[in-house]
């Protein structure tokens, strides 16, 4: 995902001389091609995210499009007030790019796990929020935000994520069907969608009709399509590499509240880490431990179905 991002951004920057990239001293083996090609529009600000966000706002308010890049919680939570006041309140054309979505940094520990970022960033006024599930969506998202002229948050995983759907992503602001199916629809945001697809395969073997939809644009949120799915399905399941509060589940539940005939909604996400220490482990191991293994997802959905 990181590589797709920087390739797409470099392409956009060669077409638009007003695109700048700032990083907070992170991006080794990722950002170098951009830095080499556009040395006058690349800045390693140092380990100083508040300064980075404020500088980005100042550059953007001078007519530029600015990307800021760092790991998970650093360009987001660490400088949240700068994003709220300096970037979003001014409508400054700043794109916040975080790598390490969810458990992507695995054994690096809780400080490096981005588990609350989507909800927090979505609260900011006027920002667009994208959680792409695969490199094709990363390419589409990077292109989209590069020309949107408004603040955006782009949440990337790390490297090696497979493409899950067709290369053609026509409109990233609309949910993207990865697997056709109507009775049960699994809505997934981010690379966790690959586990959703595997769970859907398993449920299909058991005779279920299961669709999987990637919802990569969480703000603005396409409530219309979600309501349509809710009218046609028996069960909507959301899956996200994030706590349930403030993420995809919250958005879906809010979107269909008040819809007369609606599916039941079940949320699968990461438990809050409240006061418990986080163990070492790969992303896969941590997801499994959090109840997001494929068998656990299947079992959870079966459980929801039995309660209908």
């Amino acid at each position: 995902m990181r590589t797709t991002f920087i390739e797409t951004l470099s392409q956009a920057a060669s077409e638009n001389p007003d695109i700048w990239l700032l990083c907070g001293d992170l991006g080794y083996t990722v950002l170098e091609p951009f830095a080499a090609k556009f040395p006058d529009r690349y800045l390693n600000v140092g380990v100083a995210e508040q300064n980075m966000a404020g500088i980005a706002a100042g550059i953007a308010l001078s007519g530029k499009t600015v990307f800021i890049y760092s790991i998970g919680n650093f360009p987001t939570l660490r400088c949240l007030e700068q994003l709220r006041n300096d970037v979003c309140y001014h409508g400054a054309d700043v794109k916040i790019v975080a790598v390490g979505a969810g458990y992507a940094y695995g054994s690096q520990g809780y400080t490096h796990h981005a588990l609350e970022d989507v909800g927090i960033m979505s609260m900011l006024p006027g920002i667009e929020v994208f959680v792409p599930c695969d490199p094709n969506e990363v390419r589409a998202a990077t292109r989209l935000v590069a020309t949107s002229r408004k603040p955006a948050y782009l949440r990337l995983s790390r490297a090696g994520e497979p493409n899950l759907g067709s290369a053609e992503v026509t409109d990233l602001r609309k949910p993207r069907v990865l697997r056709q199916g109507q009775e049960i629809v699994i809505l997934a945001s981010g690379p966790i969608a690959s586990r959703a697809l595997q769970a859907a395969d398993e449920l299909a073997k058991r005779g279920r009709d299961v669709g999987v939809v990637s919802v990569s644009c969480l703000k603005p949120f396409d409530e219309t399509l979600i309501r349509k799915l809710a009218r046609d399905a028996a069960l909507l399941v959301t899956i996200e590499e994030h706590i349930l509060r403030g993420g995809l589940f919250s958005l879906v539940a809010a979107a269909i509240a008040g819809v007369a005939k609606q599916a039941h909604v079940a949320g699968i996400g990461v438990p809050e880490q409240a006061g418990k220490t986080s163990n070492a482990g790969s992303r896969d191991a941590l997801l499994d431990a959090a109840g997001l293994s494929v068998p656990a997802i299947v079992a959870t959905i079966e459980q929801f179905l039995s309660n209908l």
Binding site: N51, M52, I55, I59, A60, L61, D86
Partner: peptide, 11 residues
């Protein structure tokens, strides 16, 4: 100050 720095960089 950080915002002014960004403006100075562009100028």
């Amino acid at each position: 100050l950080p915002m002014a720095i960004g403006m100075a960089l562009v100028a």
